[in-house]
Nucleic acid binder design. Structure first.
Lengths: 209, 209
DNA sequence: CAGGGAATCTAATCCGGGTTAGAATGGTCG
DNA sequence: CGACCATTCTAACCCGGATTAGATTCCCTG
């Protein structure tokens, strides 16, 4: 069942050919999962999207649940890594509010780009059985902390109103941004406009003055 | 299959006894639907929560889908009616910003109160098959219009910044508020605090100055 | 070209869950 | 008390979909 089972002694490349198939299956799963939900995700459908027969999935994943779990985790993980990366690239002297603005920008753009994974994670977070939530939840926790740190630093620096409850505000903001996948339509609105408005919500909603 | 099939000529009360059972089933469906999702909602589970055997459900609902559809609709409908009611009770001279504040308050408190229905509608909006979305979507549209009107009036009155994209802002706000059911825990945070912070988000995020 | 493992397929198993059929219960009204 | 209708139950049907078994195909290497 294991494509990556190249005994540590001999291999360098994880067989690119089959790695691609695995990736196709994962992408297909993200798509189906986002549209049909956890219980509604049938391996037959995933297989069809991935241009493969259902049992082929078992060559790469031990079970339907394992496949779903991976999708949920990948979505959360990629967004976090991307935002961290973008923040890290910022000059040392960037203001805390600037960092928040950049984080909002990075989150929204990347989330909409990975939309199948993002939508899958977001819509199904509350539906998948407990066991499947462990890794994704850990990922969520890390991401939460990232945002908490941004807000705490900004508030301590006096760039966010002292009387604002930054924990609640942060959760509201993440909700607003997560929900975007539910209504966003690239054809009717410009992405720049969305980002700008979300930034306004933070700059004016949380900022001083 | 129809409890309410009292020929128009003869009946006054829709048999309270059985109406209660129907209500129990609906409530149970909301709970299961919110936890397990559309495809994961088994009639056996709904029946168990409603303290009834699964086939009894068919006495009140033609099919599983019809039951689900009703839950999704009730959630959206009740919230809208409640917000409309609260707004209507406001004095004529309330400012537009006041109206927005009241709407935020009413939406959040009522949504958290109806949480099973709200969570069910919110989490499953994107998962239920097209046919089931008709009535709920119409409800959503009405609710959307309500908020759009509030924002348009506020902006025209100069109580909301002229350069703000109120359509995007409104969708972000509704997302933030909808998402609350995903993280809200009455034991760790006070409802008043939540409402106040969400109001801040609008007052400062959208308001002038 | 032969052998062998990787990758994928077809066919079969098996169970869960919606739905239907038909009986039992229980209260109400004549 | 007895008939009737509303309500709910038990038993059975049936199908869809995950998973497994056992070929089969496809490369790559010797």
């Amino acid at each position: 069942m294991v494509a990556m089972n190249t005994t540590a002694t001999e291999s360098t490349s994880p067989t690119p050919k089959s790695a691609l198939t695995r990736q196709r299956i994962l992408d297909a799963a993200a798509e189906v999962l986002s549209r049909k939900g956890y219980a509604g995700t049938r391996l037959v459908d995933v297989a069809a999207v991935a241009r493969v027969q259902a049992p082929a999935i078992y060559y790469y994943f031990a079970s339907r649940d394992e496949l779903v779990e991976e999708v949920m985790w990948v979505g959360a993980n990629r967004v976090r890594l991307h935002v961290e990366e973008v923040l890290a690239a910022l000059p040392e002297d960037a203001s805390h509010m600037d960092r928040l603005m950049v984080a909002v920008d990075a989150h929204l753009r990347y989330e909409l780009q990975l939309s199948d994974y993002a939508t899958a994670s977001i819509r199904n977070a509350g539906h998948v059985p407990e066991q499947l939530r462990v890794r994704p939840a850990a990922e969520e926790a890390l991401y939460s902390r990232l945002w908490r740190d941004l807000f705490v630093a900004a508030q301590q620096a006096g760039e966010v109103r002292a009387d604002l409850d930054i924990n609640v505000f942060r959760l509201l903001l993440l909700g607003a941004m997560n929900w975007v996948v539910e209504w966003w339509n690239p054809r009717t609105r410009s992405l720049d406009e969305l980002v700008a408005t979300a930034q306004d919500m933070v700059r004016h909603g949380a900022g001083v003055g």
